[in-house]
Design a protein around this nucleic acid. Structure first.
Length: 319
DNA sequence: CCATGTGTTGAT
DNA sequence: TCAACACATGGG
């Protein structure tokens, strides 16, 4: 049921985007748009209050002569920020689409190809919320560039790819001492072979602090679900996991295929979609950055300053 | 203030 | 899912 396979003709030109700036429109102040071409003014009853549509997917006009980018997921809009350049907004949408919908998402410009394997890795190693945050703050290109520099720096850091994430439920962090792994994610990333289904296997997951966690992973016939059982409650306790928090799984791209588990607090929820001005800079950095370095910093990092205090405390506790 | 981003609705 | 449109609102 992969809905997005509207591959046009060839791989070279998926969508014909011919910038046709024939119209010279300038939008003014409070939502009005005005034709500045003097010749066109006469005779035309200027319906100038209407905003010009964008020729790009995921791009909407803003009253202040700028452009907004947005993408939809699960019937809800995810705002990707505002931009001066219409094309920049379009590229922003493309990036989000690639992260949300994969390699062959329908985009405004060229699809991600083998030439961009490093960008694909970068996208997959960050959560959707992280990517959205970069896009809204216009720091995506910068962070992508930084990740490229880091990866080529010595044999130190092994790359890893994002597998999937889950917003934990109350029962996941409750007394049942188990985590349900959504079936499609489980079968895609953690397949259980034949006899292992009933008895289960032992998974070793490393967290961002380098600590290795051992979980029993098995299939429960009674509930027809894949679960982490033994060991899971210890993780919940140490990380002070709460319902609504996000756990994400990654796997080393190296030969070791090391598994990683990380967590962060909910960014977008049913009620509060995305905190506008104050995203979660400090929290979001838990993934890509050396967390120990932050704690050694003597708390000098002021980016923690404006976060909800109990959430902050939980993060500090986990370091 | 006013740019931003949300509420909302109607199309595809 | 998507964009059009109105406008609340909160950050400067």
């Amino acid at each position: 049921m992969d809905g997005s396979s509207i591959d046009q003709s060839t791989t070279s030109e998926p969508i014909s985007i011919t910038p046709s700036p024939a119209k010279k429109l300038r939008r003014v102040g409070s939502g009005a748009s005005v034709v500045i071409d003097a010749a066109a003014e006469s005779g035309v009853e200027a319906e100038s209050r209407k905003l010009p549509s964008s020729r790009f997917k995921g791009v909407v006009p803003q009253p202040n002569a700028r452009w907004g980018a947005q993408i939809y997921e699960k019937h809800k809009r995810v705002w990707l920020g505002t931009f001066n350049d219409e094309e920049m907004a379009a590229r922003t949408y493309d990036t989000a689409a690639h992260r949300f919908r994969g390699r062959d998402a329908v985009t405004n410009f060229n699809p991600l190809s083998e030439h961009h394997h490093d960008e694909i890795a970068f996208l997959n190693s960050h959560s959707k919320d992280e990517i959205v945050d970069m896009l809204r703050k216009h720091t995506y290109d910068e962070e992508l560039e930084q990740s490229r520099c880091q990866s080529t720096r010595g044999p130190r850091s092994q790359g890893s790819e994002h597998l999937f994430e889950k917003e934990v439920t109350p029962s996941d962090v409750g007394k049942l001492n188990r985590l349900v792994i959504p079936k499609h994610h489980a079968e895609r990333h953690f397949p259980l072979k034949g006899g292992s289904i009933s008895i289960g296997v032992l998974l070793h997951l490393e967290d961002s602090g380098g600590k290795v966690w051992r979980f029993r992973y098995s299939y429960w016939n009674s509930s027809q679900s894949y679960v982490l059982t033994k060991g899971w409650s210890h993780f919940v306790k140490e990380k002070k996991l709460q319902a609504g928090d996000i756990i994400s799984f990654r796997r080393s791209t190296g030969p070791d295929r090391q598994l990683y588990i990380d967590w962060h607090v909910m960014n977008s929820g049913p009620n509060d979609p995305i905190a506008p001005g104050r995203a979660q800079p400090a929290i979001l950095r838990l993934f890509g950055v050396n967390v120990l370095e932050v704690s050694r910093n003597g708390g000098g990092d002021e980016s923690f300053g404006f976060q909800n205090t109990d959430k902050k405390q939980r993060i500090i506790d986990s370091l």
